[in-house]
Design a protein around this nucleic acid. Structure first.
Length: 611
RNA sequence: GGGCGAGUGGCUUAGCUUGGAUAGAGCACCGGAUUCCUAAUCCGGCGGCCGCGGGUUCGAAUCCCGCCUCGCCCGCCA
């Protein structure tokens, strides 16, 4: 039983409940090690503090690493350290076992100060103080040539989540979508839709018999409507040289910044709006759009080409094409050059990409791109070009694996795709079926609203829950699972907590106060302790994920919190407990709901009051 | 062929950056829990030479080397 002021060492302005404890312990251990003749730094000690197995305390330090240099053996060193370390504020016990030094927190003060931090910071728990520099994060950037498939949406889900985490870590973040309106793909669609369907070539009309207007009929999304012409138009164009020439002429015209851009962009823009509407259903939004054609019009591509031309590192092919040797950047021997222009001097994608990045570097101190793993080599080419034009700065990249179907790769032209909108619709439908069975007392409007939130959250979570690097095989039953490792599992825990707080008379108010050490029950149920411990980990996790983009860890974490909460909920009574216990448990429920809500928000998922 | 990425129970997967004390989940399967705050939940059981071989180390799923398998890329396309 603790008998003195419990809260020293836990300042009010901390963002992370663990950092004071870690720091205090590391300092004490470091001092003890120095007495043994240890030459290393405090940071080295702190880095080696790990989490011991269940039941062996809260922080552990393996002594093996330093024993030899200090002319002793690990168990002896651990024992001597344990003996040499005085009472550390916040810790109840420092012990040793084998070659490990184990430290046990004063559990109650730690738990209560964690709960207090959560109630005090509310929705800001998990967030860190503002810091710099501005981060520019580009993601999704799907070509505006049709409706988005689930594979492309993984990019958006990853990018949007990473942006949320970086913001929470304190960085000012801007998200950008690069609209690739140049090139043959977009031109093909612009070309076909520049004619009324009645004047289309017979082959295309036959492929799309129901299409009669250049405007999507009411109730049809423009990305689906305009996009459906892509496959037949592309096939026709490939088979008819005169059509291909028209498309190329169109493409070349915009590529040079000639012609009326607003006319040209009509269809790509409409498709983009459709794509954005789909993404918005999953809570993905952008701060800024950069149209590739704009970089031509404003001269930035031209300026890049001038710099490249005068660069020592420029490589001029025999026929005049301008590029650089990419081998120092890892390009293969067989195709060592990355070209910025064609032989006729017209610019290519890599040149525009350099121009785009120069703009990004002006707008932000740190630039991150979210790209599919097929872009790895392109990035090396980009680096080679940046180097050649004398640009020192480089973007960071978060790569992700593709979403495939059990039958293989998704292909738009092969007609083997699963569209995001269809997955989202099916998710909503399945959730509605569940709700009709489980929540008949709700109005149908409420059920519809909740179903949409469950459905899109399930899809988003599914795309988020594994390491970005790993490829995903899309299976409907898995993507729309509402059990186990899924968004509804998290949402359900949140809804349960919300329900308890409603019934406990707390509603959406500031929540119950955290009891003081004197008021709190002296001994806690293991499920209560496990829950607070889980809650205490959010800020540290946000810090880590912000560093390396491992956003899946947050999805894993959310599951852990929900699981701890469900275990607590299942076996312990809250509302009909005795007053001191009830008080504490209500605070616990309030904090769990808060952390769940914050984690859900970081993941871009919807917290639900009832489901 | 080269480069990059991934290989963990029947399936999906966390842990690998920074080596540490019984490798943690979900699905499936088997058994159990609902007069009680939402059973989309919980409890128990089953199931793992952490791809293979070598190396470094007091200690390797984690680091290094080699091999195998799968994926992606290797256009004056984007």
């Amino acid at each position: 039983m603790v008998d003195e002021a419990p809260d020293r060492g836990f300042p009010e302005d901390e963002a992370d409940p663990w950092s004071p404890a870690r720091r205090q312990l590391a300092e004490a251990v470091h001092r003890a090690l120095q007495q043994e003749g240890f030459p290393g730094t405090l940071a080295e000690v702190e880095r080696n503090l790990g989490e011991p197995p269940q039941g062996k305390g809260d922080l552990a330090l393996p002594a093996f690493r330093w024993a030899k240099a200090l002319h002793t053996n690990p168990p002896a060193l651990a024992e001597r350290l344990a003996g040499a370390i005085p009472r550390v504020p916040g810790f109840a016990r420092i012990s040793h076992e084998g070659g490990f030094l184990n430290a046990e927190l004063e559990a109650l003060p730690f738990f209560l100060s964690t709960l207090r931090m959560i109630t005090r910071r509310g929705e800001r728990y998990g967030s860190w103080p503002a810091t710099g520099p501005t981060v520019l994060l580009e993601h999704t950037s799907a070509n505006p040539t049709g409706a988005l498939h689930v594979g492309r949406s993984r990019n958006g889900v990853l990018g949007d989540t990473y942006a949320r985490v970086l913001k929470a870590r304190g960085f000012p973040v801007t998200t950008e979508f690069y609209v690739d309106d140049l090139g043959r793909q977009a031109a093909t669609l612009v070309w076909i839709w520049s004619m009324p369907p009645s004047q289309w070539p017979a082959e295309i009309r036959q492929a799309l018999p129901s299409v009669t207007s250049t405007e999507p009929p009411p109730g049809t999304k423009p990305d689906h409507y305009y996009g459906q012409a892509y496959v037949p138009a592309f096939a026709y164009m490939r088979a008819h040289p005169e059509a291909e020439a028209e498309v190329n002429a169109l493409a070349n015209q915009v590529e040079q910044g000639a012609g009326d851009l607003s006319t040209y962009r009509r269809v790509p823009k409409a498709i983009l709006e459709g794509i954005l509407a789909s993404l918005a259903r999953m809570n993905i939004r952008f701060d800024r759009f950069v149209w590739e054609s704009e970089l031509v019009v404003d001269g930035s591509v031209h300026r890049v080409l001038e710099r490249l031309t005068s660069s020592q590192k420029a490589h001029r092919a025999e026929d005049g094409a301008l590029g650089v040797d990419g081998r120092p950047f890892g390009l293969p021997e067989e195709s060592p050059f990355v070209y910025a222009t064609r032989a006729d001097g017209t610019h290519l994608y890599p040149a525009r990409d350099v121009a785009y990045h120069e703009g990004k570097f002006e707008r932000a101190g740190r630039v991150i791109n979210v790209l599919g793993q097929d872009h790895r080599l392109h990035v090396q080419g980009l680096f080679a070009l940046l180097d050649a034009v004398g640009e020192q700065r480089r973007p960071e990249t978060l790569f992700y694996g593709y979403v495939n179907l059990p039958e293989g790769k998704m292909t738009t032209r092969g007609g083997r795709v699963v569209l995001l909108d269809h997955v989202l619709d099916e998710g909503r439908r399945l959730a509605l079926v569940e709700l009709e069975a489980r929540r008949p007392e709700l109005s149908s409007a409420e059920r519809e609203e909740i179903a949409e939130k469950i459905g899109h959250s399930a899809v988003r979570y599914h795309l988020l829950r594994v390491q970005p690097d790993k490829p995903i095989v899309f299976r409907w039953e898995e993507a729309l699972s509402f059990e186990g490792k899924s968004a509804p599992f998290l949402q359900y825990a949140h809804a349960r907590a919300s329900s308890l707080l409603r019934k406990g008379g707390e509603g959406n108010g500031p929540g119950p106060t955290v009891p003081s050490l004197a008021e709190a029950p002296p001994s806690w149920d293991p499920r209560e302790s496990a829950l607070v411990r889980s809650l205490s980990r959010l800020p540290g996790l946000v810090d880590r994920v912000a560093q390396d983009g491992s956003v899946h860890l947050l999805a894993v974490y959310g599951h852990d919190v929900a699981e701890r909460f469900n275990e607590f909920y299942q076996s312990l009574r809250v509302l009909d407990a005795e007053p001191p216990v009830r008080h504490l448990r209500l605070a616990l429920v309030h904090c769990a709901r808060q952390v769940l809500a914050n984690t859900l928000d970081l993941l871009g998922l919807e917290p639900l009051e009832r489901m």
